[in-house]
Write a protein that binds this DNA or RNA. Sequence first.
RNA 1: GAGCCCGUAGCUCAGCCGGUAGAGCACUUGACUUUUAAUCAAGGGGUCGCGGGUUCGAGCCCCGCCGGGCUCACCA
Length: 538
Amino acid sequence: MKSSIGTFQQYYFVYYPACRFAAARTGCALAAKHYNTRRRRHGAGMAEDGEENQFRNARLQKLAALKALGIDPYPYEWRRSAEAKELEARYAALPADAVTEDRVSVAGRIRAIRNSGMFIDLHDNSGKIQIFSDRKSLDEAQQALLPLLDLGDIIGVDGIVRRTRRGELTVNAKRIAVLAKALLPLPEKYHGLADLETRYRQRYLDLIMNEQSRAVLRNRSRIIATLRRLLIERGFLEVETPMLHVIPGGATAKPFVTHHNALDMELYLRIAPELHLKRLLVGGLSDKLFEINRNFRNEGISPRHNPEFTSLELYEAYVDYRAMMALTETLIAEIAREVLGATRIRYGEHEIELAGPWPHESMAGLVKRETGADFLTILADEDARAAARRLQVEVADSAGWGRALEAVFAARVEAKLIQPIHVTGFPREISPLAKADRNDPRLTERFETYINGWEVANAFSEINDPLDQQQRFEAQMAERARGDEEAQRLDADYVAALEYGMPPAGGLGIGIDRMVMLLTDSPSIRDVIAFPTMRPKG
RNA sequence: GAGCCCGUAGCUCAGCCGGUAGAGCACUUGACUUUUAAUCAAGGGGUCGCGGGUUCGAGCCCCGCCGGGCUCACCA
């Protein structure tokens, strides 16, 4: 997210309660066993292998039998002429029991074998195609190969298209080639792979077994591709800025620290790209630019937080934050339309309408409506803290007016913002990179977009007054000195860049993982990240 | 970091009041030439997450540890 400068709300989510994947039942024992077996295999001699894994042993014997037949079980290529879905479309009108003279070549993974190999369900990227092996039409070598096939093997099949009496589109095999012999068995075909831990640790198995997992990650790719296209169409230039930072800036978060040997210095994995992107704006590389890339934050892991996550940040010169509002609405609604075919989506129990325009309301206004407390009429920090505490919201004694307001908002309002809304009027205290509100110096021209109770976007009119920015940094440094480790650090070179003149600009950050969760109805961020961060097995 | 829950065959899951390990699929062998989670018959397969303890006896009770899930806390 445009790195939610200095706010806390993201961490005060009311967590979405329903877990739609296999309840909360888990079990790592079998995966552990699998790993242990592998580890032992490395340590121990081959003699032990056969007794350890009956499945693998049986397949190793078949592998040897294939080689004895002169068959390479791991050849270099297979020329395909069609995919399953393509054939389904091409032969949609082919009646049951009809045979064509069309020769096709397909390839994929064996997911089912019936009648001792007579029928094989072959799955490729696009779908399923049935393979029929008639003894009479296969030569001796091919007949010898049939019993050596296992579930999970990747094979190529060359044959004639027909539709069976039962109506299943089928390739009558003339030639079958093993393209990759599988040595380990797949999870059970009917119930599939349900164990969450195994699904995350061995994502390849999850992807083989669960159509839903494939759909989510494919949609993630389409969402990002669409986002990129929409931005480029609007004249934005895609750039890359460093992952390794000397000063971790642009957000308020704990960084990962690493060490560069040749330079003999500490470096930080970036917590946000913001300050570098605005340096490019100063340089005039483009008046519109963006980056879609990873951020790293050394913080807790939860269904909504992964230590590395993907964000979009974009900057547009000569506009203010209102332009960012319109852009946010357009991008998210367009992506939904393009990828899902609709702007009305379902997430868990909620129906959410993404078509704009979305309402915008101030943080203080929402708090007032929800709790009756009118923070805009409160002037002293002390009174603001007292007001928060009267509402049973905990605030630190060091919290000022802005933090108190934000704490009440996070505790009492956030979770209720299910339909898209831009929350404006963010306190200056928690927004050290946002320009002051034109009318109220306590506030900034900043908004965060909430959907489903989550902060999905964060944007503001960027500070381009170097003296103002310097003072904001100094205020942060003062908080840091008072013990707030999260306060932002002074980046003198960034201020220097501003001293050369940055055009007025609007900036926007969107958390890609959360947007994908929303658009794919995924209950956990781990479902939208192919390889989520996991503690290694003991 | 804390609370709650979970970990049994390759996978999905049973396992009662503590009495010595089960099913389906998968695997092996056989039957079967138009199946669709194919079917039928027989067989093999277990470090019950790991380590202690209680007990005549522990998958089950107790303690510790490992891993996972959820929630809370911390962290923008």
